[in-house]
Design a protein around this nucleic acid. Sequence first.
DNA 1: GATGAATGAGTGTTCATTCAT
DNA 2: AATGAATGAACACTCATTCAT
Lengths: 217, 217, 217, 217
Amino acid sequence: MEKEKETKQKLLKCALQEFSDKGYMKASLRNICKNAGVTTGALYFFFKDKDDLFRSLVSEPLAELERMIEGHFNEEVNISYLLKKGEIDISEIASEEGLEDDNAVAREVLKYLFKNKDIFDLLLTKAQGSSYENIADHMVAMAEKHYTGMYAVMKGYDSKRQITAEDKFIIHWISHDQIDIFIHILTHCKSFKEGEKQLKNMMAYMIGGWFAVINIK
Amino acid sequence: MEKEKETKQKLLKCALQEFSDKGYMKASLRNICKNAGVTTGALYFFFKDKDDLFRSLVSEPLAELERMIEGHFNEEVNISYLLKKGEIDISEIASEEGLEDDNAVAREVLKYLFKNKDIFDLLLTKAQGSSYENIADHMVAMAEKHYTGMYAVMKGYDSKRQITAEDKFIIHWISHDQIDIFIHILTHCKSFKEGEKQLKNMMAYMIGGWFAVINIK
Amino acid sequence: MEKEKETKQKLLKCALQEFSDKGYMKASLRNICKNAGVTTGALYFFFKDKDDLFRSLVSEPLAELERMIEGHFNEEVNISYLLKKGEIDISEIASEEGLEDDNAVAREVLKYLFKNKDIFDLLLTKAQGSSYENIADHMVAMAEKHYTGMYAVMKGYDSKRQITAEDKFIIHWISHDQIDIFIHILTHCKSFKEGEKQLKNMMAYMIGGWFAVINIK
Amino acid sequence: MEKEKETKQKLLKCALQEFSDKGYMKASLRNICKNAGVTTGALYFFFKDKDDLFRSLVSEPLAELERMIEGHFNEEVNISYLLKKGEIDISEIASEEGLEDDNAVAREVLKYLFKNKDIFDLLLTKAQGSSYENIADHMVAMAEKHYTGMYAVMKGYDSKRQITAEDKFIIHWISHDQIDIFIHILTHCKSFKEGEKQLKNMMAYMIGGWFAVINIK
DNA sequence: GATGAATGAGTGTTCATTCAT
DNA sequence: AATGAATGAACACTCATTCAT
């Protein structure tokens, strides 16, 4: 029971190393096997192909992350729902307390990212060539859906029909930026603690920008 | 003199196509030569290696762009200089006119990016594997220098010595975001005209975020 | 006793499928096992190697067929024996009734081939690379022995010694053609009934050819 | 001019050897290169892939052969045309002289087959797995077209519409057999001279069979 | 009876690069 | 200025087979 998994684990470990060092495309399966002290055939016993090996490294943490992100954006949708009902007002969200609430969710996400720092570094910066090479875009698309609703509410639109192509563009950008914030912290901070500090400022930046966009038009 | 350049130009044209289609790493020199109707030997007469071919495509437009960016940020430095002297105040920068001024410079950059859209698309999104794979980071670093000065002024710091690691981080992020705005527009808009429209909102977003960051702390 | 055989049968069934689809060489044992829901180790418990697996599919029906063919050609030898004795004459063999008699035996063979159509399709058209790749030649050799005797008689030779190299060649060809007739029907007709119809014409063709050869020389 | 082609010729020579020894599928490009004293890269300079290498060996002789076969069958169509006109009668074709005429054409084909014996051995018996693996079927189809017309005439059909499925079957068989005669001689005789002798008998066999089929129904 | 793991040699193919001519 | 030829190392991947458990 221990021995069986040893090889697979060694392979995964060496794959993580190789992919992280060279990126998906330049990574050599031969090299991974050599480092794991196994023949290439052994690798193909455990994994269908190069892409499957990569997926085995990232798919589970990614699935969990996606669940979290969905949760995150549902929080925000709730806020916009409340706004619609007139129960809280915009200034309250922008206040220190409002940001604290928002950050609480983002912090959860960030915590998880750092819990699997090496995996997410790999996924978000070394996946080019794999089936996950556009994973960030996928996340942006998730964010976009929710921000679109939120935007309509804050603009005081009666229906989403009022959203113009120009609106859509800036919503897409902000969604992109939100995801980029996470990536940026992950790749620039060594620990969650360090990242947490920066997150506060970055979220403030994003929300500041958000309101500027809402008001300017 | 004409004939020589013909081959080289054909090679550059086909290289642009191939690199743009497949990205630097997946691009095949064989294929470039085949499309140019030349043998690989000919390519190696004009270019040292694959990377040199790539560089030949982007280096000139890039150099020009870098000159422009320096200019852009010098503009902003000027603003911060004026602020220091107390001759204009922050609210003025955030006013419609202030934004207009700022946009004027950014528009110049954007105009140039679109003038060489295919080249900059290549450089900014297809360079992975080449010596320019981190070119965006380089631009960010350029932006960072100037934003650092600006930030100190707006914070009312006497000297740059007061800038903390946390300050540096957010400055780096904003610099990164500034560059990303250009890339985003370049890769999402078909023409300069279209991009120009979006730029206004995105700059508003960035400046809104900037002030949020200045004030929150 | 039931369970054991279940696996083996499943394996044989999936092997038949795989070999029939891809031919012996391109067939993958991995794939056979996967389809059978078993590991490769299991396969090697029942079968020595790839060739043994193939042989296990075809050996029994083949042995039975060979017995039949021997019988078939003994029938013909009987005819030649009778001829020798002058009790019937050649024109009688070529007559409708003579052909009917001959067809009766060939029909038996054909019936058996169709009874195991998938197996004999496999053996006769998909065996390249296996130890049976020349099985048709082997059958031809069987036919050849008997046709040689028949030929001598019809030619009015006193002894087989009179058979020349040229005679041998045409005997070999006719033997080859006889086997080919069976293969052709098997691979071109869907049912025994359909094949039976065609057999009549093909045997007429062969016998017509046979007499032409006898007389021309 | 000599040196350039040396490698390619060596490669072709070794490829012919390897393909002939092991058949297309089992042939190893590595081995071919090793025997030619070249690296695999060199092979890929001259040939697109394994199949292209095989095609380079056989395509030209094959094209020439196909021209000849067309000619052959056109001869036969001429005969059937004359028959239609009533200018010659069937017995004449079956006579020694008629066969001599027919054989003359077949001899030409056979002569060419032996002129490139090794190539056609390769093409007709070792092509499995290559794009020529069904080349014999292709030739049969060519023969079939012409035999169909001939058959209708000899049967005294007014139009080809009268040809039944059963007729078609036997025509297909005879076409197949015609091609097989060539293959058989090629693979069983060492020289054209030897083959020529056998051809006469085999053509007699075929024509004897042909008339038997025509009359029996 | 059968598994799960692993071997090791092999496959065809592609690559950037070099160099004599 | 450019060709045609060739290198040599690398690539991902597949295979039949083995064997301790």
